[in-house]
Design a protein around this nucleic acid. Structure first.
Length: 514
RNA sequence: CGGAGUGUAGCUCAGACUGGUAGAGCACUGCUUUCGGGAGGCAGGGGUCGUGGGUUCAAAUCCCGCCACUCCGACCA
């Protein structure tokens, strides 16, 4: 069968991913190593995520504000774990002027900054600085802040959307009087994210707490939600951290309590990034390209006029425009239906495949015959093929328009259902020995590393000290990672830890990961 | 930062061993035939062959230096 993307997912998943990003016109590599140019089709998705997530962040009582891109180097030296976590990947600004030296533009040696500035890899330190300035009394708390920004982490190896040197995100930072309140905030925002993933991105996740060695540098506890990609690997879709008083002690963020004494604030931070787009590609994409869930699709319906260089073309175009206008009068998920009439001077069939690859949920093709019959011919991107052929649907115009809201909801639900089914079906819970774990990931006869492997949920005893190091090394050699300890576990498993044989504390998710 | 590889048209690459007028496919432009299912023909535009030096009558090709990128590792949202 001829597919729009080559290789297919089964043939070579990583290469398939790169091809989809290119063919769906989502992003390209930039002249700057590791940074991406996000093309309109990709940025349009990000704008949808921004809007719908921002609404939810506002609904939960937060305020948006903005901090500088540059952070004084000295700010990082205050929290030891934090600086250790990020030191290896920070971009540093050292000069403020260029000068022509021997015919070449170079940083002017006479224009060296007294203190180097770090391009933010995350903003805990500079926001903490302003927390300190903003908090005097218990009456000032809580502070519930969020900013939309870009950050830079100088990664060695990058992949479009999944790991880039610069990426876009939202970072929430809050300060509270008590640990209970800060912990509740962390969980609340994790819930917001999970809701976004389920109901907007149609990307189901497993949320839980990260083991100690996977915590955010400087966090007391880190929570993640993990999505399963179509090759079985886990993708950390986002995180929320309870930072305890680590940062407030390092940065002296204190408030006067009701009794008149001074207490340290408890802080949190939480974020999701443009990586979500990469997650959606690997969750919903098929061998014909991207499939965008309607909630985040820049265009719900794309209308392709079939032009024949004949007098009837005008009537076809007019018909398309009036159909578009009527569709725009319809609402889906509380917003007008987003319609685009693609009038580009190309054959309809070529444009059709372009939009299939871009992932538009509904693609209509309108020719003279449709104008005459009053029927609309369209493809659903979630159910594109019937066997090898494309599945063309047909509905009377009025019915098509009136049913659009329901149709989009159906597409959205279908994408989620498919992803949820895959996630639920591929978490293996009955592996109870280390040998069985190795056998599961090793595969059958050969070394087929790219074949699908799901996740294991296994009993373990939380490793401490040297035992932890050993376990990590063991997993690393198998190219495995601990993802998180899923929520909702009641009591201890009542089974032995598969690594040590001692009584297990809890069940932990183990998977290959991005 | 280790290991490997590659730099020639927008993209994928051939040409290099054996020095002698810069090539193909796709994409792009124009014309044309097709026209409801990823079309075909004709004609075009486009490259200081990564960069600096050397050898030579002559260098994409041989020699030396440098730079960049990609892939595989370690690190990570």
């Amino acid at each position: 069968m001829k597919t729009a993307i080559s290789p297919t997912r089964a043939e070579n998943f990583p290469e398939w991913y790169q091809q989809v990003v290119a063919e769906a016109d989502l992003a390209v590599n930039s002249p700057v190593r590791g940074c991406m140019i996000i093309r309109p089709n990709g940025y349009g998705i990000w704008e949808r995520i921004q809007k719908l997530l921002n609404d939810r962040i506002m609904e939960t009582g937060h305020e948006n504000l903005y901090f500088p891109l540059f952070i004084p180097l000295s700010f990082f030296s205050k929290e030891a774990e934090h600086v250790e976590g990020f030191a290896k990947e920070m971009a540093v600004v050292t000069h403020h002027r260029l000068k022509m030296i021997d015919g070449e533009l170079k940083p002017d040696p006479d224009a060296k900054l007294a203190e180097p500035l770090v391009v933010r890899p995350t903003s805990e330190t500079i926001i903490g600085h302003h927390f300190r300035e903003s908090v005097k009394s218990w009456r000032d708390l809580p502070l519930l802040w969020n900013q939309w920004a870009n950050v830079v982490r100088w990664e060695m190896r990058t992949r479009l959307f999944l790991r880039t040197a610069e990426f876009l995100w939202q970072e929430g930072h809050t300060a509270h009087a008590t640990a209970e309140e800060a912990r509740a905030e962390t969980m609340k925002m994790l819930g917001v994210y999970v809701d976004l993933c389920d109901n907007v991105l149609a990307m189901p996740t497993i949320s839980g707490e990260k083991p100690a060695h996977e915590r955010f540098p400087g966090a007391e506890s880190t929570f993640s939600f993990e999505a399963m990609m179509q090759d079985g690997k886990a993708l950390q879709a986002g995180t929320a951290h309870y930072l305890g008083t680590h940062f407030s002690k390092a940065q002296d963020i204190k408030y006067q309590n009701k009794e008149g004494g001074l207490d340290y604030c408890h802080t949190t931070s939480w974020g999701v990034t443009t990586r979500l787009i990469g997650g959606m590609i690997m969750t919903h994409g098929d061998d014909d390209g991207m499939r965008i869930p309607p909630r985040v699709a820049p265009r719900h319906v794309v209308i392709l006029p079939i032009q024949r260089g004949a007098p009837e073309d005008e009537a076809v175009l007019a018909y398309c425009e009036s159909l578009a206008a009527e569709l725009r009068g319809q609402a889906y998920a509380g917003e007008p239906v987003r319609v685009f009439v693609d009038r580009k001077d190309e054959r309809a069939v070529d444009k059709r495949w372009a939009w299939i690859k871009k992932g538009a949920p509904i693609i209509c093709e309108i020719g003279g015959r449709d104008v005459a019959s009053g029927n609309i011919s369209f493809y659903r991107r979630d159910k594109l093929r019937e066997g090898e052929k494309l599945a063309m649907n047909s509905l009377p115009c009025a019915q098509f328009i009136a049913g659009m809201s329901g149709l989009l909801a159906e597409v959205q639900a279908q994408l989620f259902a498919d992803a949820k089914k895959r996630l639920d079906a591929n978490i293996v819970k009955d592996v109870d020995s280390f040998d069985a774990l190795k056998a599961y990931f090793a595969g059958k006869a050969g070394e087929n590393e790219d074949s699908f492997r799901g996740w294991l949920l296994v009993p373990w005893k939380r490793p401490e000290g040297e035992a932890g190091e050993t376990l990590l090394e063991t997993l690393k050699q198998l190219k495995l990672t601990t993802r998180n300890v899923p929520f909702g576990q009641e009591g201890k498993p009542g089974k032995p830890c598969i690594f040590t044989g001692e009584p297990a504390d809890e069940m932990v998710l183990i998977a290959r990961s991005y």
